[in-house]
Design a protein around this nucleic acid. Structure first.
Lengths: 348, 348
DNA sequence: TTTATAATTGTAAACGTTTACAGTAAACGT
DNA sequence: ACGTTTACTGTAAACGTTTACAATTATAAA
């Protein structure tokens, strides 16, 4: 138990160097000795010490991953993609969850540095933080995922949050909706949510629909929050006829608020989300949303990170993956008559 | 950049030992020198090297966590609990996802050993694997979560899967159901699913309801799988009037199959799940399920692991956390007349 | 054979810490 | 002033690897 290269060497009657060699370049050691070493390893119950290797080679063969919430299947999926890719290269990924707290984020980055990760994949909750500059200065390998705010200096892989939001709002408008609300994740915590709002706002503007700020409410990215937000929206004197949620969690929460009021989706109100998590196609009614390729997002990011770490790539990589509007049954054409009546009935 | 304790020492004009001391036991070094060292650290951009510490002290201050699927919010939640607790003790957690593949599981365990984790929290997908014996023999600190099959030798924290399943089936029976199906996760991969099935079977037996094996179908733990399974069940000549799913994912998938057939929940068929993930209360209809305290599961497991690693505890800890039957609106009393009619209408 | 070359192995320093031990300086008691 | 304790600091070995270099042995060429 707990045997080292030294023990193996003694047992096999060779030097520690050759033991090291049978581990790292077996072809350079004579077959016979290689085999005695191998059996010596078995017998002594040797297990390799990655830590010592890292110290000696100054390569940890590990990268850090920082996500806002591993509980969100989008990030969980990406994690899988990252891990799969990393493993292909013999790398381990060290995961940290920030809970959308940038203080925690900074601490995690520090912890990962102390563990000598060779690179970082991160979706940051605070796009304008000091350590970002530091990454740049020390040109430490970092690739951002999901974030959309760094156009210039950094590597990132993401989707076009602005355009995708624009597109889904356009779809809503084409269905006849004019009074369109938005339940957004907090802008200061999620640049994606902000970008989606921008798409929302621009699209309204382009279609001559006046913007009503009281129709957009910021919340945390959870179903309960979506529910609360929707309750608020439904209580308005002139509630929206459709609402765009910047996340499927919010959308599902919003839907439940609608049901609790005894209204129907999409007949009485249209709701759409963002992310297309697996569950969203199975709920009732199936949720209209925009699909992000979460697994691929992670995989691609890791690929790029590998190339950056290898020094093969120096100019900032800006990858926009394809998103896709997924039209299901949670949005319908506006029927002014019904909507008006129903709402009034309910309100008084 | 990349400065070491040695650089700091030189810069501050002290020995590396004192630098180490200001890091580990600042109170033992004179205030003045401490401060010069501290500023030297700043100036040289020193960042601590955990790897070297680990090598020297033979403590990695890290533990491994192995889950079947981080994409499942239950495991994600537990991960959070584990991480929070671990951080309180200055420990880092290294996460691995097995995708319910025990081959992958073995590889992960090995990888974690090479990284010299001091302990392991795991929900294993193969309860009867050789390395489990190894843990025992080498008495390596391991605590299992969610697994229910190790009554004797190991530490674990879980809920009583048998009893909880028994209870929810009893509830169904009290509602008048006799033809109760089950959509289960694969037994060979999930001992929990198997235990739940046992609870299901025992409860039927205790209530004099004959068991019909064609009513229980094993699947992977996903919504699409649940949907397929439900489709199969609905196609039977005598479909169940209620079905118990061993996971909320499966339940939600099952529900969508029901809707697609034009049937209503719970009027035409009752469905219940297991886990009580956050979303389950927000879907329509809100899902009847059993709640597992996922976060606490992780937190408690980590607490125990700490005590085991510290040698404070040697007799196997067997912790059963409280589960809770959560009755919502996806199950209703059996109405023989309606059910019969509707099914017949649909079938022909 | 002998020599040159290739294949195989060993020696020892290095990676960045911690820590037992020894040393020195300051403070205290008398 | 002295010895003694206390506070602080330095020296050097150790943790388990890798790797440049040297040394040895085997092989091929002459």
């Amino acid at each position: 138990m707990g045997s080292t290269i030294k023990d193996v060497a003694r047992l096999a009657g060779v030097s520690i160097a050759t033991v090291s060699r049978v581990i790292n370049s077996p072809e350079t050691v004579k077959k016979e000795t290689r085999e005695t070493v191998l059996t010596a390893m078995k017998e002594s119950g040797y297990t390799y010490n990655t830590l010592a290797r890292s110290l000696s080679t100054r390569k940890s063969l590990s990268i850090g991953l920082i996500v806002p919430s591993i509980t969100n299947p989008i990030f969980a999926e990406s994690t899988l993609g990252i891990q799969d890719c990393a493993n292909n290269f013999g790398y381990t990924v060290l995961l940290g969850d920030t809970d959308y707290d940038f203080k925690k984020e900074a601490m995690l980055i520090n912890a990962l540095n102390e563990r000598r990760v060779e690179g970082l994949i991160i979706t940051t909750s605070s796009v304008s933080n000091p350590y970002l500059k530091k990454f740049k200065d020390e040109d430490f390998p970092v690739v951002f995922i999901y974030n959309t705010t760094f156009s210039e200096d950094f590597h990132f892989v993401t989707i076009d949050n602005f355009k995708s939001a624009y597109e889904i709002i356009k779809y809503l408008i084409e269905l006849g909706h004019k009074r369109i609300g938005m339940i957004a994740g907090y802008f200061d915590i999620s640049d994606r949510s902000y970008a989606r709002w921008q798409g929302y706002a621009q699209c309204l503007k382009d279609h001559g629909i006046p913007q009503d700020d009281s129709l957009v409410v910021q919340e945390s990215f959870t179903a309960p929050a979506g529910k609360e937000a929707m309750k608020y929206l439904l209580k308005m004197s002139k509630p929206p006829t459709a609402v765009f949620c910047s996340n499927d969690f919010l959308a599902i929460g919003a839907m439940s608020a609608v049901y609790e009021k005894g209204l129907k989706i999409p007949d009485d109100i249209s709701i759409c989300g963002f992310d297309n998590m697996e569950l969203s196609s199975h709920i009732y009614p199936p949720l209209t949303t925009v699909d992000q390729p979460a697994y691929e997002m992670g995989y691609r990011a890791m690929e790029i990170l590998m190339r950056v770490m290898a020094g093969e790539v120096t100019v900032p990589q800006h990858i926009f993956l394809d998103y896709k509007l997924i039209i299901r049954n949670s949005c319908s054409t506006l029927n002014l008559f019904t909507k008006g009546r129903k709402h009034e009935e309910k309100r008084f």
